[in-house]
Design a protein around this nucleic acid. Structure first.
Lengths: 204, 204, 204, 204
DNA sequence: TATGAATGAGTATTCATTCAT
DNA sequence: CATGAATGAATACTCATTCAT
């Protein structure tokens, strides 16, 4: 029975993998459910045993993956001490998605923004947790005196996420050179760490 | 005859305005051409006297508006001297879009990313010019000694655009409080200006 | 004023000529009224000053031309004496259409058969007069003793018309070699003249 | 499984039957795909499981039926000896179509000539085989000395087909009296057999 | 669970026709 | 008479979803 459940989970996973691949290539609205099915090696109808409808595939996909990403992010950040190290790690993880999971990154960067209904209703929770994790790092840095106090952690988090997303976007549209992306990441880390650094409290 | 030409242009403009409104509300793929027509007060067929097809509406809309935005941006930046003032102005113009042209901003932030084909093939030129304008400001700052040299102007430009786009995204999804957005803008300006500032070359 | 009326008639004629050309190339249903207008060098709306609608163009065209053809046929046949000479002339006139008025012939052979409604309601009168002219020749030959009596003139007329139409069809679809068509015509004349010849009434 | 395959074929056949009926009544261009579907008792979309598009229905229909007709023709002619008997059989089979398969005959006689593109590209092969079968009979008659040699078998075939098609056309447009058609057929047979008869080689 | 044939609602686009100029 | 911009009805075809097997 465990085996059977695994079997089902494995099929669900195969469908998600195929969906990522096809969504990345064609975009959500230009993707046919039958193509996901064909790519996954299942019948059209089988999709509907695992997902409510086509929208649900995108939503499940996003929530599933962002969840794993958030978990991984928290795990890695917990192992680091300095706020600037944590910022660097955030940068490398978010940009690293593009290397290891190019299709997934493309789906998240591009396809997820189909409509704000989509974003608001379904993607918001996972996305907010992502931003919260980053904001927590900023806040921690503020409390430790590393980062200046006059910047809202949330604003900093959105900006950092956005800056990396902007880089991802131009990278996806452009050269797709991995080294170039890594260097860009270092520069962004630098901008934010310096930009957030608490002024030298001279005296006392 | 001038009047007649104006009439045609005015009708085209009305269609674009309506498209912005409806795209913003429903998203590109959930927008019916007939709804754009109804909103513009023209017949369905009339749309096709001014645009090749539905895609062409979105493309024309983006290129038309980004062109005007770029022009305005260049005009305003030319009137400023200090690089940091220019960065602040970039921030206020990009975020200002959300106030004055909420629907347009929503279309650009959300709807344009329908497929990377869309982005790559049609939106890239106008978008690149936008990034070039920002990059030029950064470079200028580097030459004047205000900004550090070890950051690629292009990377900085993408990051700044992205940071503001990230703010826009969360703002659109969230409270939509104008003051809050203005304050966030100031903080981002601060992060980037400080983050880009050339280190004090103390002494000689 | 006569000039003006001529002007109008001339424009109507130009539209008909253009219609023949475009119908022949594209077929009735694949022809756009606007293309006829463009070919004729008039505005779309002008067409409707001379014809009730698109159907009316085809109907007018057919009736106008078949009328002229019938007139010409009668004129030429009247100048001949022997029934077999007349049959030969019918053959050469009908097939001659393909040489001198290729497009017109194509429209009549192919496009006119769009629907039997078309044929029954509008084309029938002119077509029937055409068949009547041929039938009259047969009957005349029967009365003169040249042709056998046991064939209905009408049936012979339909068959002769059809035989030539069949030749036209394969010719239009095939080589389009003019000489070959002329030789074929002679053979058809022969078949019909011999096939219709009254048996030698030997003796008495 | 055989049953399942039959089921599919049976549905395809039902669609073709309905198409014949509706095409005959309304003409190809005035036929709605949805009406074919309704007549066949299937959903609109089902049509597209069996045919590429509307054109493909007409093409398939013609090729399917002309193929069967050609087969039947060859079978029956093989059982006959004398060339004139064979000519008579050709006549009765072609005209017989109008009795047994009135709608089909109407589609072939009238609707198929929508455009020469249609005819040339798709209908030509089946139509040519039909003409070849007739031409072979003529040639056989020439070799046996029954028919004169100075008529091209192909020309005779086109003419015979055309004569019968002409009869069909006027019959479809007119009285539709079956007996009258049968008598007309006998007369056409007569014309062609006599018209093709080899001259009496008197002497020796 | 899995299938895939069948469904039928849904829509971009065309084009004959009109009518204000 | 002539124009051609505007109209809006009309329709082939697609594709997410269902359900009998």
């Amino acid at each position: 029975m465990v085996q059977e459940r695994n079997k089902g989970a494995e099929k669900r996973e195969r469908i998600l993998q195929s969906a990522i691949k096809v969504f990345a290539r064609k975009g959500f609205y230009n993707t046919r459910v039958s193509e996901i099915a064909r790519t996954a090696g299942v019948a059209d109808g089988t999709i509907y045993l695992y997902f409510k409808n086509k929208d649900d595939i995108l939503i499940s996909l996003f929530n599933d993956r962002i969840g794993k990403l958030n978990d991984e992010m928290e795990r890695q950040l917990a192992a680091l001490d300095s706020p600037s190290e944590k910022v660097k790690r955030i940068v490398s993880i978010q940009l690293g998605l593009l290397r290891g999971h190019k299709d997934l990154a493309e789906v998240i960067t591009i396809n997820l923004r189909q409509s704000n209904r989509f974003l608001k209703q379904y993607a918001a929770p996972g996305f907010n947790r992502y931003l919260d994790i980053i904001a927590a790092v900023i806040q921690e840095g503020q409390q430790s005196g590393d980062f200046r106090q006059d910047v809202s952690p949330r604003v900093a988090a959105c900006s950092l996420f956005g800056a990396l997303d902007g880089l991802s976007l131009t990278w996806v549209l452009g050269t797709r050179d991995a080294d170039r992306l890594a260097r860009a990441g270092q520069q962004v880390s630098h901008i934010f760490i310096e930009g957030l650094r608490a002024p030298e409290t001279t005296g006392t």
